[in-house]
Design a protein around this nucleic acid. Structure first.
Lengths: 175, 175
DNA sequence: TGGCAGCATTAACCCGGGTTAATAAATTAT
DNA sequence: ATAATTTATTAACCCGGGTTAATGCTGCCA
């Protein structure tokens, strides 16, 4: 069952232009965002302006800071639109109301947490066991549809390397 | 609320000697283990005998393969006792019965998944944003109690580096 | 159309970690 | 207590990735 089935009544759709923030690390209160159209990136920003990309979220998927939503803290990372997007925003209080009042939503939350935990376990595996080149190849095959929508710079920052290193890897694999 | 409160009636306690497997990658059917006493490590084993440690689990904590439990597949990693242990084993079917029949257990599962997702997000952050030396320092302070119970080899394999590299890092930080 | 800004590639140089191997220290077994 | 095994350290050498900077390339805007 998809997100929109669970939360169809909630929130309103907003347009977010390419390059704009959905929310920013340590700022706004927590919200959940459903991406109806477009593509965004979730990333950590360091004091000196470096970016480390956690994940890419595209149409049909959901993004929000777990720590922020659960513990009612500020967001632990930022989210920015990589394309012009249409998103639906659900505030923490709206979400909590749903979770408390409907078994459906609780079920959805369970599924969401399970999927998230498994995705992060997979990423742990990749950082722990694979080289940068292997991670890149795996990314290209698993996210084939995404690759042409991304810059090398962002792919590199997702893999945990610099764009220079990614360019070298691509040459070695003769792209 | 602790694990033993939820599942006190289930399973029976077993002794596992140091060095023995609780379960092995791609083998046994899925189970959940509650560590009553002792310390175990969860790790991926490669065909050529290398180990990559996912996590250490000590007394009071729970370990089991999510993919195995949820999708009823074989385990995706191995778990071995680092000390003599006493553990309680709950089979997949026992767990599923509980989850279906009692709201308490469903609540516990939710908490467990949430904690797991957040822990893995934290680890993602560390691999993405921190150097090996920084990861080591963070590990030492956050898991101070564990450090003296572990070998350098296993700490290194948890950090994603070789014991040689860890030794060099320790020297740089003059330990 | 020309000029400018951003992105990808390449080169040069440095450094951290991998690998192998030797040594030393600490456990365990006999 | 001694031998045998495991664990930690150190050295030497190599390689991959970081850093900086130069060069193209593309697209955009004035």
């Amino acid at each position: 069952m998809s997100f929109s089935d669970y939360f169809s009544g909630l929130g309103s759709s907003v347009e977010i232009p390419k390059g704009a923030y959905l929310f920013r690390q340590h700022q706004e209160p927590a919200s959940l965002f459903f991406i109806e159209q477009g593509l965004v990136k979730a990333f950590y920003e360091t004091f000196d302006g470096k970016e480390f990309i956690k994940s890419f979220i595209k149409e049909g998927q959901v993004i929000g800071s777990l720590q922020a939503l659960v513990a009612d803290q500020s967001n632990s990372f930022s989210v920015i639109a990589l394309e012009n997007c249409i998103v639906k925003k659900i505030s923490r209080s709206q979400l909590m109301q749903c979770v408390d009042s409907t078994a459906h939503t609780r079920g959805w939350l369970n599924e969401f947490l399970l999927a998230l935990a498994m995705k992060k376990e997979q990423r742990e595996y990749e950082f722990l066991c694979l080289s940068a080149a292997e991670r890149y190849l795996l990314f290209c095959q698993r996210e084939a549809e995404l690759v042409p929508r991304l810059s090398q710079l962002d792919i590199a920052r997702y893999l945990g390397i610099t764009p220079v290193a990614l360019s070298r890897i691509r040459r070695r694999l003769n792209f």
